[in-house]
């Protein structure tokens, strides 16, 4: 188990290392001169242009040797310096990103956890009854095949425009100043609901199908057949199958985080929800390269962190790894 853990940790470290390297490498090895490119394409205010030119030459540091450039990049990173945003000049990229992150957390954590929970519940029901299987499974396939932004668009159009029940842009009404009151909280929840629902529904479909297939697989496993042969009632066989099917569903969640995050990005774009995804769109449209690089790094760090948490959860609930741990420390 220690071996398992250190292996995982090594992979995370290497992944982070690789991600930072990609982040550093790409602007330098893309065709053309990045500084020239950016400055000609970005429509900067005069004062910004001057400062930006300084920043970019320093950051890309074309005068220092390439190895030094790379070290400088890491050095700046450890000091939390990701450059300055063009689009929100002169706010540092780190600050811009930190302002956006809470919205992502607010959106992602409930939708991931709830869709995982509900998806697994319904998937397990589907594996149990023919009738539910014929309804939940097709629905699951449709939902998991739906592009996130399209579901978002449909929800926004139907509930926001046609029914007029929900706002479809921003995290709270423009005329409100954030403060602590029931009215404001209600307003925030209303803005949150539709983006949350789109993420929840797509995730739900995937989880339900995954669970259904996993349970059916577990019910055909040898230990299930043995229990049946010894006359164990259906409820006990199902209970064991469900418990064992949940474990791979946890690993599956870790692996699908990348897709979920991508879904969150486009969902935020649809609803102009001020998280990293929305920021990213603005950065791309404004050719704000430091901000793009920063978004990339934040996403990677977030996904790595979530993976790490899921790993720990897995270690805690799979008894096999726990006994492995006891065996080694004993």
């Amino acid at each position: 188990m220690r071996r398992y853990f250190s292996r995982k940790l090594l992979i995370y470290i290497l992944t982070f290392f690789l991600a930072v390297t990609i982040d550093w490498l790409i602007p330098r090895f893309m065709p053309g001169d990045p500084v020239q490119n950016m400055l000609s394409r970005a429509m900067l205010r005069a004062d910004a242009a001057e400062v930006m030119y300084g920043y970019y030459t320093k950051a890309f540091g074309l005068d220092v040797p390439i190895g030094q450039q790379y070290l400088n990049f890491w050095n700046a990173l450890f000091h939390g310096d990701l450059g300055t945003s063009v689009y929100m000049f002169p706010t540092p990229v780190t600050k811009v990103l930190l302002r956006a992150v809470p919205y992502d957390i607010f959106l992602l954590i409930p939708s991931i956890l709830l869709s995982w929970y509900a998806g697994n519940k319904f998937g397990a029901y589907a594996a149990r009854s023919k009738w539910l299987d014929n309804t939940v499974s097709p629905l699951g396939y449709v939902l998991t095949a739906t592009p996130y932004m399209w579901l978002g668009i449909l929800l926004a159009w139907f509930f926001g425009i046609v029914l007029g029940k929900f706002p479809i842009a921003g995290a709270y009404s423009f005329n409100l100043v954030p403060h602590l009151s029931w009215m404001f909280i209600w307003d925030v929840l209303k803005h949150w609901f539709l983006p949350f629902a789109s993420l929840f529904l797509v995730g739900f479909g995937g989880q339900a199908i995954g669970m259904r297939n996993m349970i059916i697989y577990e019910l055909e496993a040898d230990y299930s057949h043995y229990l049946e042969a010894l006359g164990a009632p259906r409820s006990l066989v199902r209970k064991y199958a469900f418990r064992n099917a949940v474990l791979p569903q946890i690993t599956g969640l870790a692996l699908s985080l990348g897709v979920i995050v991508a879904g969150a990005l486009v969902t935020e774009v649809v609803f102009s929800y001020p998280g990293i995804g929305y920021l990213l769109l603005a950065a791309i449209q404004n050719q704000d390269y430091f901000l793009i690089q920063g978004c990339f790094l934040f996403i990677i760090i977030g996904v790595l962190f979530a993976n790490f948490v899921i790993d720990i959860v897995y270690l805690l609930i799979d008894p096999r790894t726990r006994t492995g741990m006891m065996g080694e420390t004993a």
Binding site: Y223, Y226, G231, R243, N244, D318, P319, R320
Partner: peptide, 26 residues
């Protein structure tokens, strides 16, 4: 209908005895 008889009247040591026990239960 077979359940009352299984285990008590008729039982089996399956071919897959290596995997016959639930891996996540003591």
């Amino acid at each position: 209908e077979m359940n009352p008889f299984r285990f008590k009247k008729i039982s089996i040591i399956p071919q897959y005895a290596m995997n016959a026990m639930n891996p996540t239960r003591k």
